[in-house]
Structure formats: C-alpha cells, structure tokens
C-alpha cells in the first residue's frame, strides 16, 4: 500500500512515502527540512519532490497519514488542512497519528519508560509517557500541557528506575529534569527530538491495512489546549 505521510507540528517539515504492509512500512523516500514558520510555503513542493524520488504518481497514492500534534497550532492546521484536502481530492483514506507517538517510536529500542516532551510555550510542555519493551511501545498518558515541574513530580512518583527523555522540551527545562530525577533521567541525543514522517507511517500502517481509518471530515489536530480567549472566559465564569 503506497502511503504519503507528513508532519508539520514542529519547526521541522517531514515528508515520507512508504510501502505499508500489515507488519512493516518500507521507506521509499523521506525528506526532512528545518522550516520554522515555513510550512505553508514548503509542504506541497516538498511532497512533490518526495514523490518524484519514488517515481510514484500522486494518483497512485493509496492513503495519507498526517501528524496530529500536539504542537504549534498553526503548523498543525497547515498539515491537517492539506492532508484532508489531498485525501478528499484523491479519494483515499486518511489516518491521523499523534506526533509525540512518532517521536517515541524513534527511540523504541530503549527498554523501559520513555517520556516525550515538547515545548508548549507559556512555561509549559506537552508530554506523554510510554512503556517500551521488546520493541513494542505503549502510551500510558494523554497529552495535557503541564509545567515541567509537575511533569517531573509525576515521573518521580512512579517507581521507574530509568526514564528516557526525548523531544525539544528538553532544551529549555533540562535543569529541572536533572535536578529532580538525577541519575534516573536519560537524555536522548538532539537529533531524535523531532517527529519523522517514516515513523508516523509505520505507526499508521496496521490501521491502514485493517481499514481502521479516520473520518475525513472530522479529523482535527490534537490541540490539547483551549484558545486563550476560551481559557479566560472559563476563568471569569468560575471566578
């Protein structure tokens, strides 16, 4: 099954074309570019270039996979709008995958607890905790934004001997993690911090093969936060 996959939740723009089967997603081509605030201009030309690398015509694509975040609201909407419209026009199924799950998959060889952390601005991070064992990864939490302090508190509560931290939330808050978790915190190298489209496609592959796809008209990003106007409104209502 020829699958186009991409993610625009982070400052990176990542596009892949894979051949998906029930137990594998063979990578045909992947292009990763560093394009903060440049997704609108870059995504479609980058999709076109990636497809050209594989020799597959866009009409031959059989599914679209898109990263749902959480992450930059604007970046996510660009990716999801384009994914939905491509799927609609090509009349092919669409599957959305949490971008943090893709980041966790990149470090799936690690045995034990994995925590993905990305910068959520406003002194918060989006984080998720996974259990990785024997090559399979299970997410244990959802994607609420929280302060790095509450995150380390939650991690410290759990009786985990070691936790692998991965994601660009590390760079601003490294000291908090080191200070509270000490030797239990293992930091991934920087080049693992951003999602890759090949991982998204691999996560989506079993669902695509089974036909457990998403509803095109209701697929939206994982915002994990209300708009600030709604947050203020709720605060006022409950004051």
């Amino acid at each position: 099954m020829r699958v186009l996959s991409f993610d625009t939740s982070s400052p990176a723009c990542t596009v892949a074309v894979v051949d998906a089967t029930s137990d594998a997603a063979d990578l045909m081509a992947e292009i990763n570019a560093w394009t903060p605030r440049g997704h609108m201009a870059r995504l479609l030309p980058q999709i076109d270039t990636t497809l050209r690398e594989t020799g597959i015509a866009k009409e031959e694509l059989e599914a679209v996979v898109v990263g749902l975040g959480p992450g930059s609201f604007t970046g996510l909407r660009i990716g999801v709008t384009i994914a939905r419209t491509l799927a609609q026009l090509l009349d092919i199924p669409i599957v959305g995958v949490p971008s943090l799950d893709a980041i966790a998959r990149r470090v799936g060889a690690f045995e034990g607890a994995i925590c993905t952390i990305i910068d959520a601005k406003r002194e918060e991070v989006y984080a998720a905790v996974y259990e990785s064992s024997g090559g399979s990864i299970k997410r244990l939490t959802d994607f609420k934004p929280l302060s790095p302090e509450s995150l380390v508190y939650e991690l410290a509560e759990e009786n985990i001997p070691r936790v692998l931290l991965v994601g660009d939330g590390i760079s601003a808050h490294r000291k908090v993690f080191e200070g509270h978790l000490g030797g239990r915190a293992v930091f991934s190298p920087r080049d693992f911090w951003w999602p890759r489209a090949a991982d998204l496609a691999a996560i989506a592959a079993p669902r695509l093969v089974e036909g457990a796809v998403d509803e095109l008209f209701s697929l939206v990003p994982i915002y994990a936060r209300l708009s600030q106007a709604e947050e203020l409104w709720l605060k006022k209502e409950h004051a």
Partner: peptide, 16 residues
C-alpha cells in the same frame, strides 16, 4: 491563521 486554511486547501486542490 484563518487565511492559511483556505490557501492550504486551495493549493492542495491545485496540486492534485
């Protein structure tokens, strides 16, 4: 942010 949605959809239509 609003303009991006229309433009993203229009460009995807044009591309396909």
């Amino acid at each position: 942010g609003a303009l991006l949605i229309g433009l993203g959809a229009a460009k995807a239509i044009s591309y396909v």
